[in-house]
Amino acid sequence: AYTLYEILIVDAGVTDSQMLEWLSAMAQLGASMLRVLRYAGDNNPAAIRNFAAEQSRGEYLLLLDAQAVICERDWLDELLNHAQRPEV
């Protein structure tokens, strides 16, 4: 339901041809809210996340695991409600 977001997909050295094809298709969508980033550094998860965070344009940052499954339409609204609480 929340529409003011961007999705950053980080390619940290993908070699699988099907995944490369998918990443290319995502990059060609041209949507301002979806960007594919190429990371050329070491295969260090923290460095990859920091790279993505540096590229983000939003006020809030959510690092979502590739295996996460979204089950509810308002999941992002619910997370933002917690992030916007004064004590958080």
Rank of each mutant, 00 (worst) to 15 (best):
A1H: 06
Y2I: 04
Y2D: 03
Y2M: 10
T3S: 09
T3Q: 11
L4V: 12
L4M: 08
Y5L: 07
Y5I: 14
Y5C: 05
E6P: 14
I7T: 07
I7V: 15
L8H: 03
L8V: 15
V10K: 00
V10L: 01
V10C: 00
D11Q: 11
A12P: 03
A12I: 13
V14I: 15
V14R: 04
V14G: 02
T15S: 04
T15A: 00
T15W: 11
D16W: 02
S17N: 09
S17R: 07
S17M: 07
Q18V: 12
Q18Y: 12
M19W: 05
L20K: 13
E21V: 09
W22D: 02
L23E: 01
S24R: 08
M26K: 08
M26N: 03
A27S: 13
A27F: 05
A27N: 05
Q28T: 12
L29N: 06
G30A: 02
G30Q: 03
A31C: 10
S32F: 13
M33S: 14
M33Y: 10
L34F: 07
R35Q: 06
V36Y: 02
V36C: 01
L37N: 00
Y39M: 02
Y39C: 00
A40R: 14
G41V: 15
G41R: 10
G41K: 06
G41A: 01
D42R: 09
N43R: 13
N44K: 09
P45S: 01
P45Y: 07
A46G: 00
A46C: 03
A47S: 09
A47M: 11
I48S: 00
R49D: 08
R49I: 15
N50Y: 07
N50V: 14
N50T: 11
N50R: 09
F51K: 01
F51G: 03
F51V: 14
A52G: 01
A53Q: 10
A53P: 10
E54G: 02
E54K: 11
S56R: 03
S56T: 01
S56G: 07
R57S: 15
G58E: 02
E59S: 08
Y60D: 02
Y60K: 07
Y60S: 03
L61Q: 09
L61W: 11
L62M: 12
L63V: 15
L64V: 15
D65G: 08
D65Q: 12
D65M: 03
A66T: 14
A66H: 09
A68F: 12
A68W: 09
V69S: 04
V69A: 04
I70F: 10
I70R: 08
I70C: 07
I70E: 05
I70Q: 04
C71Q: 10
E72M: 09
E72K: 13
R73G: 01
D74A: 06
D74N: 13
W75Q: 06
W75K: 05
L76V: 14
D77H: 13
E78T: 11
L79K: 06
L79T: 04
L79S: 00
L80Q: 04
L80W: 09
N81V: 15
N81Q: 13
N81Y: 13
H82T: 14
H82L: 15
R85P: 12
P86G: 00
P86T: 05
E87C: 04
E87V: 15
E87G: 02
V88C: 10
V88W: 08
V88A: 01
V88L: 05
V88M: 09
